[in-house]
Structure formats: C-alpha cells, structure tokens
Simulated scan of single mutants.
Amino acid sequence: MTTLHLRCACGEIQGKAEVPSPESGNRVVCYCKDCQAFAMQLQPEKILTPHRGTAIFQVSPSSIQWHQGVEHIRCLRLTAAGLHRWYAGCCQTPLANTLKPSFPFVGLIETAIAPEDRTDKNLGPVRAHAYPQHANPRLPQDILQHNRVWPMMIRVMLKILGWKLTGKGKPNPFFDPKGQPVSQPEVIDSTR
C-alpha cells in the first residue's frame, strides 16, 4: 500500500490517498481546452506543464481522505453539466476533477499530491497524453508516436467498472452521503 500525501500549497487542506500500487490508478496528462480553462481561473503557471497540460492521477473516491481543511475546498464548473473541478479556496491549488457523486472516479491533479510523492515509483508512468492536439507548443514527435489514448481509455473504463462493483465509489470525499457537493459549485464562463 502506498500513501500519497495530499495538501494544498499553503497547507490548510491536508489528506491522503491510499493506493495499493501505481497500477491501481491511472496517470495521464490532459491538454483539453476545459482543463486549460480551469487552470486559467487559478494559477496556470503553477498547474500547467510546459505544453499546457494538466498532470492527473486517476483513483477511486474511497481511496481519498481529508484530515483537515475541508471547509476550504471549493468547486468550479465550466458549464452547469460539466465536471466538478475542485480547488483550495485558501490558496488556489487545484485538487481534483469528478463527475457526479454516483460515478466512482476522481482525477487527482498532481499539484495536490506532495512533491515528494509525485514519482514514477508511486504514480507509475504517464500512460497517455489526452487531447494532444491542444498542446501548445506542440508535443515532441516521440511522445506523439508512442501516445496510446485508446488503451488508456479502456483501462480507465475497466477501473471505473471495478470500483463501482467493489463499492469503492463511497465514501466520496467531495460529496456528502446524500450526494451533495461539499462546496456549492460556482458555474463560470470559461471564455473570460
């Protein structure tokens, strides 16, 4: 079992993710316009990779526990039906992306993982670069040649199915037992 220490930049929010092994999660870098728009609402220079990607480690909701600072967790949605995008209201550190509370999936944004735990040993290799067409500047050719998005998507779907069948969708650290978000989402105009 690997414990990933979670915290925002100022330390007000702290928690952990317990993962049996790097294989139990899924590491990706996403370059989609929505991830870029979310970063632009916070601190893009601290979130985005040199090619405007967001590094994400996908885990089951039940693997995450907050020890302090839940009252500082905030939520943005780029549309009323979009992803819940969680961040620290105290210091603007992005924390995670989720869908609806019944969907057993959390995309932990790597900036929420303690720097000493952000290693290949703990998280595994980056399995894919999602939406590489939105990278800016363009990704190097060796990354594009070896990018395998479809196998990663199948892997994620199988993980989500497994988490659903084994009850790892609950408890969800971003929703209360009734399925309400721990912070009322603010729907923003991402074109600002």
Rank of each mutant, 00 (worst) to 15 (best):
K168D: 01
P151V: 05
C90T: 10
S102T: 11
F57Y: 13
T49H: 10
P132F: 01
P101W: 01
Q133Y: 14
Q133H: 14
K159Y: 00
M157L: 13
N136Q: 14
L123T: 09
A112V: 00
V182C: 02
G124H: 00
L78W: 09
G162C: 09
W66H: 04
E71L: 14
K168N: 05
T166E: 05
W163L: 01
Y131K: 06
P44C: 09
V149N: 06
R118S: 04
A80F: 12
P125A: 15
I64T: 12
H72N: 14
P50G: 08
G69W: 00
R127K: 12
Y87F: 14
P115S: 08
P177I: 03
H129G: 03
P94D: 04
W86D: 03
I143Q: 01
H84Y: 13
A130K: 11
K164G: 10
Q43F: 08
L99M: 12
E186L: 15
W150R: 14
L144G: 11
P137R: 12
P137A: 12
P171A: 06
H72L: 07
D120T: 08
I47K: 01
Q92V: 04
A55H: 12
N147Y: 05
P101S: 05
N147L: 02
E116A: 13
H84C: 11
D142Q: 15
M157S: 15
W150C: 11
G107I: 01
R118M: 13
H129V: 07
I47C: 02
C75S: 09
L78V: 05
H72C: 05
R85C: 07
